[in-house]
C-alpha cells in the first residue's frame, strides 16, 4: 500500500520533471530567493515584526505599510519577512533529521541484506502508514507545544520517504564492481559505506530532501496554525494565517492571504525543484 503512495508522488513528480530546464531554473531561483529571505528576513524587515501600533491597526496596503497592518497594528510585510526564518527553520530541521536517519537506515540495511533488510523494509512500511500531522500533534501533547516537539515527530515521520529512495539506490550500488574491489582491497564496511556508498547516493538524497522540504514546511505550518507549534506573538507563516483569522472573518484577509500565498509558493517551488533534481540525478524514473 505504501508503494501506491509512493507511486502517486512519483507520478506528480514525473509531470514536474517533464517541464524541463526553464522549470529547473525558475524553481531554483524562487527556492533560493525564499531561502535567502529566511536568512536575512528579520534584518531587512522595515518595522519591528512584534511592534504593535493601535493607531495604525487594520490598515490596507499603503506607502508606509506595503502589505497593510494586522488588527494589532503590526506591519504585515515585516512579519512575513521575519517569519520566514522560523517557517524555514522547522522544515530544514525536519529534513535534516529524516535525511540522517533515513540514509543511515537505508545504507545499513542494504549493506547487510538478508533478514536485517527485510526487517527494515517492514518497519518502513509500517511507518509509511503513520499519519504525520497526528503524530506531530501528539508529540506536542507529550513534550509541550513549541518548535522541537513537532519537528522531532515530523523528522521521524519523514524518514521512510528518504529511506525508500536511498535504499533502492544503495542496493543497486552495493552490487557494483567497485564495492567488491574495495572489499577485496581490505577496506572496512564502515569506511566503504561512509566514503564511497554515501557520496554516490548523495545526489538522490539531495533531490529527495528538496522534495520533502515542501511538504515538511506545510505540515510544520499546519501544526503552528492549530496552536501546537510556534507560539504567538512570534512571527511564523502558520501563526500568521491563524492570527489573520479574525480579520478574515471581518472581511480583511491580507494577513492570511500573504502568509498563505507564501506557503503555497514555497511548496510549489521546492516540489518542482525536487522533481527536476531527481530526474537529473538518475533517480528512479
Amino acid at each position: 500500500m505504501a508503494v501506491t503512495w509512493a507511486a502517486a508522488g512519483i507520478a506528480t513528480r514525473r509531470r514536474f520533471a517533464a517541464m524541463g530546464r526553464p522549470a529547473l531554473i525558475a524553481s531554483a531561483a524562487a527556492a533560493g530567493a525564499l531561502a535567502l529571505v529566511a536568512v536575512i528576513g528579520p534584518w531587512i524587515a522595515p518595522y519591528d515584526p512584534n511592534a504593535t501600533d493601535v493607531l495604525a491597526a487594520g490598515q490596507d496596503p499603503s506607502a508606509q505599510h506595503l502589505l497593510g497592518t494586522d488588527s494589532l497594528g503590526r506591519d504585515i510585510l515585516s512579519r512575513a519577512l521575519a517569519g520566514a526564518r522560523l517557517s524555514f527553520a522547522g522544515p530544514a530541521m525536519i529534513v535534516l533529521i529524516s535525511t540522517v536517519l533515513g540514509t543511515a537506515l537505508a545504507i545499513f540495511s542494504a549493506w547487510h541484506g538478508g533478514w536485517i533488510d527485510r526487517m527494515a523494509n517492514r518497519l518502513l512500511n509500517v511507518m509509511f502508514a503513520v499519519p504525520g500531522v497526528l503524530v506531530a500533534v501528539l508529540s506536542s501533547a507529550v513534550f509541550g507545544a513549541g518548535f522541537w516537539a513537532p519537528v522531532l515527530a515530523l523528522g521521524v515521520v519523514y524518514t521512510p520517504y528518504m529511506a525508500r529512495v536511498v535504499r533502492s539506490m544503495a542496493i543497486r550500488e552495493r552490487h557494483q564492481g567497485y564495492v567488491e574491489s574495495l572489499q577485496l582491497a581490505g577496506m572496512s564496511s564502515w569506511r566503504i559505506g561512509v566514503r564511497h556508498l554515501a557520496p554516490n547516493v548523495m545526489p538522490i538524497v539531495v533531490a529527495q530532501a528538496t522534495y520533502g522540504f515542501g511538504s515538511a514546511l506545510a505540515d510544520f505550518a499546519a501544526v503552528s496554525f492549530i496552536g501546537l507549534g510556534i507560539q504567538p506573538p512570534q512571527a511564523e507563516w502558520g501563526v500568521m494565517v491563524s492570527d489573520g483569522r479574525s480579520e478574515l472573518l471581518d472581511g480583511a484577509p491580507q494577513q492570511t492571504l500573504v502568509a498563505g500565498t507564501l506557503i503555497v509558493v514555497t511548496v510549489i517551488a521546492f516540489n518542482i525543484l525536487g522533481a527536476q533534481l531527481s530526474t537529473r540525478s538518475g533517480g528512479r524514473r
Binding site: 509531470r15 496554525f225 472573518l249 503555497v264 510549489i268 518542482i272
Partner: peptide
C-alpha cells in the same frame, strides 16, 4: 500541481474568505 501544494489549512481559510 496546485492541489498538492496547497495545505488543507490554507485552502480552508481561502474557502472561508
Amino acid at each position: 500541481g496546485l492541489g498538492v501544494a496547497v495545505p488543507g489549512f490554507v485552502a480552508a481559510n481561502a474557502l472561508i474568505g
